[in-house]
Design a protein around this nucleic acid. Structure first.
Lengths: 172, 172
DNA sequence: CGGAGATACTTAACATGTTAAATGAATGCG
DNA sequence: CGCATTCATTTAACATGTTAAGTATCTCCG
């Protein structure tokens, strides 16, 4: 493996810090990023084998349990920004994994639904995906997993309505 | 705000689910993604005002406390992939925020360090950044924040050495 | 010492994140 | 009714994520 003898995170630096910031590796965004990456690393290879990216898979999953959804709604559910979703839907449609038809009442809206092929693809991916999730749960502990997700939800709630012009004063 | 009366996550679907998967919005990757986004949403505007992206800021922070670092080491510290780092370093160097010189002993390695200008820029961003972090801590609770980060670290540990060919058998 | 293999970094190619602007369609109000 | 405003979606432009391939350098072994 040719591991270096020590210094697992740049600890050998000769103490030249002038700005008294929180230790970098322990910042909340970093912790969240690393944890998420550790999790996604487990899923990516399997998805890749089926020709799907993480985001494409999110969209299929979001569509799996419903008849159809508007693009905006889907963006919220799959947690994707509009432009990303727009591109991905174009590609998924070209691959016949989803279907689209504009709403009758409002020509602006388009209803998106998963296709038969899409369902089939999901069925072929889901078992592996579930197995991986089960293994993660086993390793980390089911109890702790629930606890972690509760805390993540609370964090999200704590910050809801901050920073996005949601606050108070200056509108533009 | 024009909130729809109900249906906070596509619950109005007429029960067409055939694949018995975990509720989408409660998957671990989604929870982590949403939590991280909620946090980053707080920081991005401030960084943007200073002409920095999140990743550029991570690199400057990683360099702030040390004399210099090799690119690979920096990639590990700032949690960026080599190609991303390569591009970003090129841009940061063009903006004179970092400096680079190839190591004497090994011409392959290049030592990266933050420049005087880089330090100045950090000093102008850090106060706001710290204030935001403090507000997040206040809202979520300092105690819980530590607990959350501990759990995230444990999760990372639980999954270390899975999935990346680290396992056992099939090499290629 | 010389070339096969390993190493550090960069480039390439494609997909997504992020913000701003454009497009097309509905709504409201005078 | 007509048009400014709002809304849903897409396009554009730039930055990063992700994997594969390329380039230069170094190491080691015969």
């Amino acid at each position: 493996m040719t591991k270096k003898p020590a210094d697992p995170a740049g600890e050998n630096a000769p103490a030249a810090r002038q700005v008294p910031m929180r230790d970098f590796s322990r910042s909340l965004p970093m912790s969240l990023l690393r944890a998420r990456e550790a999790v996604m690393r487990q899923f990516r290879p399997s998805l890749r084998e089926h020709g799907l990216t993480e985001q494409q898979w999110r969209i299929l999953r979001a569509l799996a349990g419903i008849e159809a959804a508007e693009v905006t709604e889907l963006a919220r559910t799959a947690f994707l920004l509009g432009p990303s979703l727009s591109r991905i839907l174009r590609d998924l449609e070209a691959r016949n994994l989803i279907e689209r038809k504009t709403a009758k009442a409002d020509q602006r809206r388009s209803m998106v639904s998963i296709s038969k092929e899409g369902v089939k693809l999901m069925a072929s991916v889901a078992p592996t995906s579930e197995a991986i999730y089960a293994e993660i749960t086993r390793r980390f502990g089911a109890r702790k997993l629930v606890e972690l997700q509760d805390m993540l939800g609370e964090l999200e709630q704590s910050l809801a309505g901050l920073g996005s012009g949601e606050g108070a004063s200056a509108e533009e």
